[in-house]
């Protein structure tokens, strides 16, 4: 048990160290040419547009379930009219950014890990390097930036869908009109509810992209390694997103008036 815990701690520290160096390499590369604009647009489309369906389902479920779960309690306390406000604040501040990031990480980080891992296994990355094509800028920088651009947009999209899900439940259960729901939401939320939630997804996007790229780019062990890269990419990115969220909430409280 003692040996196992030592190995685990060493493994984790090693991983954190290597991931930090990989991130440092990203920050150096991101400001140096070649700038792969075409590939960046393609990757942003892959991460963003191809996640629309998934995000829509998750968004509507978040809004609807939160409303259905909270309704009985809110009614019990005579606060039914506060349901739109409660749902809006919960969704915008926390549920939508974190849940969407974790769910999208499942699709995107795994995809990046598997794709780059497979390129490593079939020597495509080596071929790029030998051809002086700068695979780091082409494969890593574009994918990480794409995640950082697409995830905030997906979060805003999910915010709207989640509120729509909540409205549907309120409309069916209590006959609340669209205008009333809209007014209740708009009266209760401020910039401080919306902006930090979206801003932190830029960092979550970075985590998702860099972990996926790190796992794939450094994949070892052929096809078995590709599977491991995909799995590790999802596990580590989801874990890091949740840990980073604690820090993000602390910073939000510090910088924004969310009382």
């Amino acid at each position: 048990m003692n040996l196992l815990s030592k190995i685990t701690v060493r493994h984790v520290l090693e991983k954190v160290g290597k991931l930090s160096l990989f991130s440092l390499r990203f920050f150096k590369a991101v400001f140096h040419p070649p700038f792969e604009t075409k590939e960046l647009i393609k990757q942003t489309y892959e991460v963003g547009v191809r996640s629309f369906g998934l995000v829509a389902i998750v968004g509507i479920v978040i809004g609807a379930v939160l409303t259905m779960q909270s309704r009985p309690t809110m009614i019990k306390f005579g606060a039914e009219s506060f349901i739109p406000a409660m749902v809006a604040v919960s969704v915008l501040r926390e549920l939508s950014p974190v849940l969407i990031s974790v769910i999208v990480a499942g699709r995107v980080a795994a995809g990046i890990g598997a794709e780059l891992g497979s390129m490593r296994a079939t020597e495509q990355i080596d071929a790029m390097e030998v051809s002086a094509l700068n695979p780091f800028n082409l494969l890593v920088v574009t994918r990480v930036l794409a995640c950082m651009i697409a995830l905030p947009l997906l979060t805003v999209y999910a915010d709207f869908i989640a509120l729509f899900g909540s409205f549907l439940v309120q409309n069916i259960e209590a006959g609340m009109s669209g205008r009333l729901f809209y007014n209740r939401v708009m009266d209760s939320i401020t910039f401080a509810d919306f902006a930090p939630g979206v801003m932190k997804t830029v960092f979550f996007g970075f985590i998702m992209g860099i972990v996926g790229c790190y796992e794939g780019y450094n994949s070892e062990g052929g096809t078995e390694g590709v599977g491991r890269s995909a799995t590790d990419a999802v596990v580590f990115s989801s874990l890091l997103i949740i840990i980073a969220d604690v820090l993000a909430v602390k910073l939000t409280v510090f910088f924004f008036d969310i009382s």
Binding site: M119, T122, E123, Q124, D126, A127, E129, V130, A132
Partner: peptide
């Protein structure tokens, strides 16, 4: 490297 061509075992084409 621009002066060196490298043929990998499996061709290593960008798929």
């Amino acid at each position: 490297r621009k002066n060196i061509g490298f043929l990998f075992q499996g061709g290593a084409l960008f798929d």
